[in-house]
Design a protein around this nucleic acid. Structure first.
Lengths: 354, 354
DNA sequence: CTGAAAGCGCTTACAG
DNA sequence: CTGAAAGCGCTTACAG
């Protein structure tokens, strides 16, 4: 590994040739030798620290470039006590919410040259605990915990001082930092959009009642209706998030109150089922009945005819915020409580003004 | 950090209390002190290496447990030269293929206590290169490169000896190791399923021609038809992967040959569009026309009425295989060439025998 | 069976 | 401005 056969102490190239190990990566020591400086100076130069002469620094930089030097991450991590790595634990990667959160977080963290170590707990609390231990033993600088539902979840309650941010599912512990979407706001958004289009007989088809998302969206929708002096058209029913449920609920609605002129569905799948029933019943969308979904899931929202107006949960933004909050917490400025990221209405043909 | 105020050298608890640093994690040295052995012995005991007495080992294990000792990963990584970490680079995390591959890989690797460092190149070749460099500087033991299409992609052509496995999109370099799905097999599978149900006038609706997946599936389908002495019913057209294209192509088909009794669609979205047209045209599915999709995308395949028979690419299995191949390569047994994971037919109502 | 010592590659007071 | 030295936490020949 050490230089062999150096002809001239000043001859960079020959040194480079002789110093470079046949296979392995070059080390800081190789760089220092090539630049003709000490380890300490090479390190300072590379890290952009003050007390180094400009010419010296330049020489070191050149040498590093010549050797394609890459600092050994493990060594840096060991001495600095920080790994520039965070752990991201998902309850479930399969659903369509975790991935965009992951994408947003990875993107935001990348700009801080922080990498993401991924663990999938697959909905298993024991596995989650194990993964947390693994990540901790890998000296992660922080943790992001992603769950696929907005139902609050128990805190990790770490004894270690590693900061944690909960994304999508907030922690039940108000001391913890959480980011999720504003489901009440989403409910309001949907109703206000329909009101603005002149609809007055607005019905609601809920998702699964066991989901906070479902109850919160319904509460927001009711609130907006009330503010306009209205009540939901027909009964508000909860079921699940499926197309089949959308068909069933819309059927009920039609039997109950044929005058309905708009339907707020709590998922795009529900909306799709709802659309099918309306078509079959001969109602024109959006002329007779406007329909709005939720999730802005392109495969559905752009597959229907007309396209489906929907509400986007902005999951990528949630991931981005979670990352930003974690970075701040790692810097010592911890957040507490639940931060809400607003949802976004995406208008398409199913509610377009006639 | 060192023990202070030890009353009795043999009193484990008091030592534990006094040795434990107020905040930080305990180190191997803490464990050794508590167990009354040297660093070397503690290390050997913990790593399950031979030359340690059983009683001594027990004492060390106890001490480690008592102190909730977790080895410092950076230190181990530095000295062992292996990080027990692999890098996984995706071209795109948003699509629905990358995620299951990721899940499969993470799962398989986890069983080897190897963690996954995730990078999302977002379809940007420069970003990909950067990420590769970052991952390499983090001493990953291997790399999995995931692309969202099965079109062959350029090799990373690493100069470093880190093993690489390409998943979904195979590398163009036959020296590299790749895993992807058997699209020709999938084409055959679809046709053979329909033949077995007695269909003879089988049409094909292709996806986007620029995709190898599309051409390969068509080739497989043609091959199976030929083997039965048949040719595709009507023209085989390519378009894109959308519902709209499915509608359009099915319309053409109906005009061209009204006798068609089965349609192989190269995506579930295409199949969905195809189903809508058939319903509208008054054809019963599956009685008059059987329809088969591809991707087994539950939101579509289980949303239609009847449910859509489809073909699953087994992406999770692809991820699992990629991980297994990488582990073998890290162990010195490198793979070469492209391995195909068979697709799986998932029968549902749209092809069910009457 | 056990332990003292060197070393992995780097950073950072500290002294010049 | 520059460098010798200690140290991060661990593992592994090597000598007892």
């Amino acid at each position: 590994m050490r230089a062999i056969g150096i002809v001239s102490g000043q001859n960079g190239w020959e040194q480079a040739l002789s110093t470079a190990s046949p296979e392995g990566r070059s080390t800081l020591s190789d760089v220092a030798t090539l630049a003709g400086v000490s380890l300490a100076t090479a390190s300072k130069a590379l890290r952009g620290q003050p007390r180094v002469g400009p010419a010296t620094r330049e020489r070191v930089l050149q040498a590093a470039q010549q050797l394609a030097y890459q600092p050994n991450h493990a060594a840096q991590s060991l001495v600095l006590g920080r790994s520039r790595t965070i752990g991201l634990i998902t309850s479930d990667l399969q659903g369509r919410f975790s991935t965009p959160i992951l994408v947003g977080a990875e993107d935001a963290l990348g700009r801080h040259s922080t990498s993401v170590l991924l663990s999938n707990a697959r909905g298993d609390a024991d596995l989650e605990r194990e993964h947390v231990q693994t990540l901790l033993s890998r000296n992660v600088d922080g943790l992001i915990v992603v769950n696929a539902e907005t139902n609050p979840r128990p805190s990790l309650a770490l004894s270690s001082p590693v900061p944690v941010v909960y994304a999508y599912a907030p922690s039940t512990d108000a001391e913890d930092a959480s980011v999720t979407c504003d489901n009440r706001g989403a409910g309001r958004l949907a109703v206000e959009h329909l009101l603005a289009l002149g609809r007055r007989r607005i019905a609601l088809i809920g998702g699964a009642r066991s989901y906070a998302a479902s109850r919160d969206r319904a509460a927001g929708a009711r609130q907006a209706l009330k503010a306009a002096g209205l009540a939901p058209c027909g009964s508000v029913r909860f079921g699940d998030w499926s197309e089949a449920w959308g068909r069933q609920a819309m059927q009920h609605l039609l039997e109950e109150d044929a005058e309905v002129d708009a339907v707020v569905c709590q998922s795009d799948q529900i909306a799709r089922g709802c659309l099918d029933v309306l078509h079959f019943a001969g109602r024109r969308v959006p002329e007779d009945v406007a329909v709005i979904g939720h999730d802005n899931w392109d495969v559905i929202a752009e597959g229907t005819q007309p396209g489906l107006t929907s509400i986007d949960n902005e999951c990528e933004q949630i991931g981005r915020r979670a990352a930003a909050m974690l970075v701040e917490a790692m810097g010592g400025a911890a957040h507490h409580g639940v931060e809400l990221v607003p949802c976004r209405l995406v208008p398409r043909g199913s509610t377009a003004p006639a």
